Amino acid sequence: MDQKKEDLSKSFEEFQSKMDLFSSILEKFGLDIITKMGQTNLKITQLTDKINALDKATIDIKSMIPQLSNVIENQKFLEDELDLIKSLLKNMGQISSKKKEVENSVDRDETATIKKDIILSQFNDLRENLEALEDPIVVKPILEQVKEDIFEFTGGHRILYEISQVVIRLNSASSLNDLMDEQDTTSKTIKDHLMEKITFWNNKLMVKD
């Protein structure tokens, strides 16, 4: 009888020990589950916060779309304005260049006009004084100067050749009353020839721009 009690007591102790072990294992397992559930809940919470933040950022971006559109439109407007300014500056440069060309052209025209007036004045003065002149040496430097002025004014003209022919004749003449062509007795005198030629030369120069 005592042996049975002792065996029963041992069995109970073993059972109790196993139950304690099972309870310990179950408790540990439960704690692990609770811990993992807590960690999972924390991660879910963090993920939820991130999703909410992302939603808020998306909403903020959507709210900025009209502003971004305005920025893009303003940028396009500024680009158009810059293109307009560049075009205006380019046109101003072209206008300035053309203005300078016109001014240079006007200056050249004024210079040419002045030169032509000087030549005409020299011819007219010579024609007025020819009646009182006799010495070819007096006339020669006047014609030489006129010839240089005509060359500067025209760059080349038949008048230059005709004046040169008169100057050559003056080199051998003793008087302005000598014949222009020594071989032709019907030839006009140097003085008359010059009077006639000066009128002709003036007319030629008057139509020369």
Score class of each variant (00 low, 15 high):
101 E>P: 00
105 S>V: 01
151 F>V: 06
39 Q>D: 09
161 Y>W: 06
154 T>R: 04
92 M>I: 14
111 T>H: 05
24 S>E: 13
86 K>G: 00
187 S>K: 02
160 L>Q: 12
115 K>I: 07
77 F>L: 13
35 T>Q: 00
89 L>K: 09
177 N>R: 14
139 V>D: 01
127 R>Q: 06
82 L>C: 02
56 K>H: 07
25 I>T: 04
129 N>K: 15
95 I>L: 09
117 D>M: 09
178 D>F: 04
76 K>R: 07
152 E>M: 06
178 D>Q: 12
65 I>C: 01
145 Q>W: 00
175 S>D: 12
66 P>K: 06
57 A>N: 07
138 V>K: 04
171 N>T: 15
8 L>N: 11
196 E>F: 05
84 L>T: 05
177 N>S: 15
80 D>V: 03
26 L>R: 11
197 K>N: 14
86 K>A: 03
164 S>D: 08
157 H>W: 01
38 G>W: 01
4 K>D: 11
97 S>Q: 10
175 S>Y: 11
32 D>T: 09
26 L>F: 13
29 F>P: 00
55 D>H: 07
85 I>S: 02
35 T>S: 07
22 F>A: 15
201 W>P: 01
194 L>Q: 01
193 H>C: 05
186 T>L: 13
182 E>P: 01
56 K>R: 09
165 Q>F: 05
63 S>N: 14
42 L>M: 09
70 N>W: 06
121 S>Q: 10
101 E>F: 08
3 Q>L: 14
145 Q>M: 04
22 F>K: 12
75 Q>N: 13
26 L>Q: 10
166 V>T: 08
40 T>V: 03
205 L>N: 02
66 P>V: 05
182 E>D: 15
123 F>V: 00
83 D>M: 11
14 E>Y: 08
17 S>P: 05
143 L>W: 00
82 L>S: 02
196 E>M: 15
165 Q>H: 14
186 T>D: 11
100 K>E: 08
87 S>H: 02
95 I>H: 11
200 F>S: 05
61 I>L: 13
17 S>V: 13
207 V>T: 13
165 Q>A: 15
91 N>P: 01
67 Q>P: 06
97 S>I: 03
17 S>H: 12
3 Q>E: 14
81 E>I: 10
111 T>V: 09
40 T>Q: 08
180 M>F: 14
